[in-house]
Write a protein that binds this DNA or RNA. Structure first.
Lengths: 206, 206
DNA sequence: TAGATTGTTAATCGATTAACAATC
DNA sequence: TAGATTGTTAATCGATTAACAATC
């Protein structure tokens, strides 16, 4: 297999596979098959095998996949064997919840810097970290070499801050503000907006 | 246009169009084109016109789309003209942030019931609502006729609660627990897991 | 061996896009 | 009228699936 372009849609499924496999491992399961994993995820077994085949051969005919081995391989493929340090901008209710969320650590991420522009919050401590002033975003992110940021500020401020994150060399932004960001194409953006998901569902609910 | 099946992927883009159009309207803009909207969203103009064509004709040649009219139509299509009452299960940090989030109201949703199984939380007030005991989920949701639930409980409890939500007649679950739920096919499920999005991005970040 | 399951090929299916007549 | 943009068709592109040889 040569240096082939991996479809985005395939990349998008890998973390879902990883999450399900990790859970199986936690439950003490050692081996699974594309059939079993597919049934659990509502995906065809052929699709799982095809997706994995973009990256190598990880299974054994007649047997299936060693879960721990496949987990390792997916972590390597997704670049999450080592822990990423992540900055958080915006310490409202949501930002606070993210800072305190303990589900990041064992999946490859750790929030190590938090920013807010509210003078009443700057200098206080959240999840053991001092809240830094948003004016220091560029300097601090550069100094710490951070590449990934979670953005939990109001919609009206998101684009302006995104611009500064790009300036600081950030490569990936997880945007919780309900607004589309414009960034250079080498910067990854993912969106989390619960209303989008709710509206997707209400289409089908009468 | 007859009773044709609308592709899921099309339905998934409509809320994104709606969000962008709503923002344009807030900015005082009256008219837009598929070209302008597409550029803002990073989508081709042809795709936007094709998507909308599943539901009717909303534009005018040479001119484009009346933003307010298109917003109304999308709200109608997505079934969000009237406000949906939503239940929230799980009042940890995240649940609390959701209960206090003021971005739901003007987009068609309102949390009107909150549940938790922690005796220390039951009976307290969150965002003006009493925290109800999780043991009452089925009865309360049935009594109030709720159809949509946000699930913000630990992964280990999510499937069990989902089962009870299904029993209570819930039709749509927005699941924040990092685990795949198994539900009957007539029940909609959407997932929000920040780590999935982060891992999708780190694939591209070296 | 018999049964199970992989990785891969080719066929099918579905989504996106280019192009353009219609028309504002 | 000239320019712009829609809605739609047909072509292209890409993703999913069925099927099966290989083999554990």
């Amino acid at each position: 297999m040569s240096i082939r372009e991996i479809p985005d849609i395939v990349v998008g499924r890998l973390p879902v596979y990883l999450r399900a496999l990790t859970r199986m491992a936690q439950d003490g399961q050692l081996i699974t098959s594309s059939k079993e994993l597919g049934e659990r995820l509502g995906i065809s077994s052929a699709q799982i095998r095809k997706d994995l085949s973009h990256f190598g051969e990880f299974g054994k005919q007649g047997t299936g996949y060693q879960i721990l081995y496949l987990v390792e391989q997916l972590q390597r493929i997704l670049h999450t064997e080592a822990e990423w340090q992540v900055a958080l901008v915006g310490v409202g209710d949501l930002g606070r919840a993210l800072a305190n969320y303990n589900g990041f650590a064992n999946r490859g991420f750790r929030i190590t810097a938090v920013f807010d522009n509210d003078p009443a919050k700057v200098g206080t401590t959240i999840a053991g970290m001092p809240v830094l002033d948003s004016s220091q975003i560029v300097d601090e992110i550069r100094a710490r070499g951070l590449r990934i940021v979670m953005l939990a500020v109001p919609a009206g401020r998101a684009q302006e801050i995104a611009n500064r994150l790009v300036e600081a060399g950030v490569r990936a932004i997880l945007n919780y503000a309900p607004i589309n960001l414009t960034v250079p194409k080498e910067v990854q953006v993912q969106y989390i907006d619960p209303v989008i998901h709710l509206q997707r569902m209400t289409f089908y609910v009468t």
